[in-house]
Design a protein around this nucleic acid. Structure first.
Length: 184
DNA sequence: GCGAGGATTAACT
DNA sequence: GTTAATCCTCGCT
């Protein structure tokens, strides 16, 4: 599996991650599901005023400065988790926010985490995605390529067609078209 | 279907 | 003290 695209800039990695799959297992809850990534956003370093890493490392964002292929999880708005995949060489901060996905298997497990939500909206936002897949700070820094504890793995899939749009929920660098949505 | 308002933590000014 | 890479509920149309 060729994951070298993760070593490049977050913008390139964000396009390439569309169509890739995530396999999530949690031995403690018995959760097991596989999803296809359908929407991403790229966040850079010093070149990106909207990025958490823009002003250098902090305890919260330090994973973004580490080696590529790891998971960066942060807590926001007092109640939500968001998940990112770290990109770029070690020392060069960058990450791709995973915004949306579609289920491949384990639909029953996903539904159990999203009670009352129709299937079409199970994972159509970044915090919804982490809730559906039981992602929280315990997985911050987890290596998706080695998957040492059999909890979360990235599987590269075929490239999808995409369109670029402005990123959501930010107030700086709103002219960067760094959000990528897979075409239906 | 749409828009306003609330929830609640961590980092930074 | 303010802001944030957000989602859900409720009220109205």
């Amino acid at each position: 599996m060729d994951t070298t695209f993760l070593h490049g800039h977050a913008v390139e990695a964000a396009k390439r991650l569309l169509g890739c799959r995530l396999i999530r297992k949690d031995p403690e809850t018995g959760f097991e599901a596989e999803v296809i990534i359908t929407e991403t956003e790229a966040y850079g370093g010093a070149d990106d005023p909207a990025s958490h890493a823009h002003r250098g490392p902090t305890p919260r964002n330090r994973v973004m400065f580490g080696p590529p292929g790891r998971l960066y999880v942060y807590f926001t708005y007092g109640m939500h988790y968001c998940m990112n995949i770290v990109t770029g060489p070690e020392g060069e901060p960058g990450a791709v926010l995973l915004r949306a996905a579609k289920p491949v298997s384990g639909l029953e497990h996903i539904r159990a985490n999203r009670p009352g939500i129709p299937d079409s909206r199970l994972m159509d936002g970044p915090a919804k995605l982490t809730k559906a897949l039981e992602i929280d700070l315990r997985l911050n820094g987890y290596d998706l390529l080695e998957d040492p504890d059999n909890r979360l793995a990235l599987v590269v899939g075929p490239s999808l067609a995409w369109k670029a749009t402005p990123r959501i929920g930010i107030s700086k660098a709103t002219d960067y078209l760094w959000r990528f949505v897979a075409e239906p």
